[in-house]
Each structure stands twice: as structure tokens, then as C-alpha cells.
């Protein structure tokens, strides 16, 4: 009984902030509510859902969001692992270095997105200048549909890698040193100990980082809105941004809710799938 009382306040809060919007979005997705209806809410019998399935821009944004999330999260994992291994070694002023490495995570996303836009700016930004000084042609990164999304990935990696590094670093510190020593006595090289000890023992930490980061990256919104506004030619537009534009610019709340709800379904099935796959690979490993 006391257990229920202790959890209840947290459940109520989550119900208000998560539960209500989710239910509201679901309900709204079966209704029209836009300038055309004078913002009145009118049942439109699932017309939003039919529209979203046939909406080319939605599917293009889905692909772009997947591209952004998967490239960004997988690069972040690799880089974070390398940084965590480096920061776990002993060197002078390690505490300060660790703190400075954490800094990008601690700075506001929106503000630093603007900073990155300035860095990629053409013709005044440093990247463009350096390219010109080195004799290249103007790169014009943020106006090039093939490059702009990579710029957003770079900014995202810069911003969120520190958090994964933090989790992996915490994980590395739980691995007892005698495991490595035992493997060394067996004649293992440092690469062996990485593959056979570090990676398997970090698995729960990797799993949790992937899940959290995938969800975040899939919902990416403010970074892209500030850096590119979805452009050039919609090449960086994410589902989150599309939903935002529908609500705030086109004032089509019913359709915006449908996009949000539909992308939530796609995201959670994707997360479930990857969670299942990682679980399964763990079983295969442990049965060896």
C-alpha cells in the first residue's frame, strides 16, 4: 500500500506531461482543426491518416530522419567509446580534461546550433575561409543539399557524444582490472581484451545509450530548425520539424498531431526492434 503512495506523485506528473499530450494527439489525429475550420475541432473520420500515408514529404522526412538518427548515433557510439577509453587512462590534469570534454553536453542546444551555423556560414565562417585559403572552391555547406545534412550530423555528434562518453566511462570504471590481467597472463593482446572484456561488459551501458540517443535523435527538432530551418530544398527537414511547421506555420493542428503520433509509432517499433536485436545477440554471445 505504502509503495503505491510513494510512486503515485511521479505517476501523476508523468500522466500530465506525457500521458495527456499522447492521448490528446491520438484524439486530435482523427479530427480536422485548422484555419479552414476556424480552428474548431471537427471529426474527419481518419482523413488525416489517409493523407499522411500518401504524403510524399512525410515519407521523405522519415527517410531523412532515419538517415540523421542512424548515422549520428552510430558515429557517436564509436567516437564516445574511443574518448571513454582515452579518458579512462591515467594522465596529468585528467579531471580538467574530462570536465572540458563534457562541456558541449552542458551547453544549450539551441545556442550552440546557432554557433555551428556561424561556423558553417558562407562566406564569413571559418570552415569556408580555411577552404578558400587552401585553394578550394567555395563549399557553401549549408546551401548544398548533399552536405547540409552532414553539417547537422556533425553538430549533433559534437553536442551529444559527451553524454554517451559519460555513461561508457562510468561503465568502464565498473570493470575490475584483474580481468584484463588474467587475459594478459593468457597471452591476450590489448585488442583481444577490448573485444572479449570491454565490449561485452559494457553491453548494458551501450544498450541504454543507444535507446536514449535513438529516441532523442529521432525527435530532433531545435538543432535543425536553428541551423538550416529544414533546408536547403527540405533536405534536412526532420519529422519533428515537419510536425512543428504544420502546427505553427500552416496552423493545421489535426494533421500535425497525426504526424507526431505516426512518427511515435514508427520510432517505438524501431526501438523495440533494436532492443530485441541487441538482446538476441547477447543470447548468442553467452551461449558460446
Amino acid at each position: 500500500m505504502i509503495n503505491y503512495i510513494l510512486i503515485l506523485p511521479a505517476i501523476i506528473l508523468i500522466g500530465i506531461v506525457f500521458g495527456y499530450p499522447i492521448i490528446r494527439y491520438f484524439w486530435l489525429s482523427f479530427h480536422a482543426s485548422s484555419v479552414l475550420t476556424n480552428l474548431d475541432v471537427i471529426n474527419n473520420n481518419g482523413a488525416n491518416w489517409l493523407r499522411v500515408i500518401g504524403d510524399g514529404r512525410f515519407w521523405q522526412d522519415t527517410i531523412q530522419t532515419f538517415r540523421f538518427a542512424s548515422v549520428s548515433v552510430s558515429l557517436e557510439l564509436i567516437i564516445a567509446m574511443a574518448i571513454a577509453l582515452l579518458l579512462n587512462q591515467k594522465f596529468r590534469a585528467r579531471g580538467v580534461v574530462r570536465a572540458l570534454t563534457l562541456l558541449p553536453w552542458a551547453l544549450p542546444t539551441t545556442i550552440m546550433a546557432l554557433g555551428w551555423r556561424w561556423i558553417f556560414n558562407t562566406p564569413y565562417g571559418p570552415i569556408e575561409k580555411i577552404a578558400l585559403l587552401m585553394g578550394f572552391e567555395s563549399i557553401n555547406i549549408l546551401s548544398n543539399p548533399n552536405l547540409a545534412w552532414m553539417a547537422t550530423v556533425i553538430a549533433d555528434i559534437w553536442k551529444t557524444t559527451p553524454f554517451i562518453t559519460l555513461i561508457l566511462l562510468a561503465g568502464l570504471q565498473t570493470i575490475p582490472n584483474d580481468l584484463y590481467e588474467a587475459l594478459k597472463l593468457e597471452g591476450g593482446k590489448s585488442f583481444d581484451s577490448f573485444i572479449r572484456i570491454t565490449v561485452p561488459l559494457l553491453r548494458p551501458y551501450l544498450l541504454i545509450s543507444v535507446l536514449f540517443r535513438l529516441a532523442q535523435a529521432f525527435g530532433v527538432f531545435d538543432l535543425i530548425q536553428v541551423m538550416t530551418g529544414g533546408g536547403p530544398a527540405g533536405s534536412t527537414e526532420s519529422l519533428g520539424l515537419y510536425a512543428y511547421l504544420n502546427a505553427m506555420r500552416f496552423l493545421d493542428f489535426g494533421y500535425s498531431a497525426t504526424i507526431i503520433f505516426f512518427s511515435f509509432i514508427i520510432l517505438s517499433s524501431f526501438c523495440l526492434l533494436s532492443w530485441f536485436l541487441i538482446r538476441k545477440s547477447k543470447l548468442i554471445l553467452s551461449s558460446k
Partner: peptide, 28 residues
């Protein structure tokens, strides 16, 4: 079971991209 289902509820909630919540939260 109650504690476990609360944990699952939390994990599901954390998957919902929070920036997508703020439009509705504005109504709240």
C-alpha cells in the same frame, strides 16, 4: 508487478521525443 510496469511506463515515456510534446503542453 506494479513497480515493474512503472519502470516500463517510464522507459516508453522517455522514447517519446520530448520536443514533440511541447505543442500539446502549450495547451495544458
Amino acid at each position: 508487478k506494479f513497480a515493474k510496469s512503472f519502470k516500463i511506463l517510464l522507459l516508453t515515456a522517455s522514447l517519446f521525443p520530448y520536443v514533440l510534446l511541447f505543442l500539446s503542453l502549450l495547451e495544458v
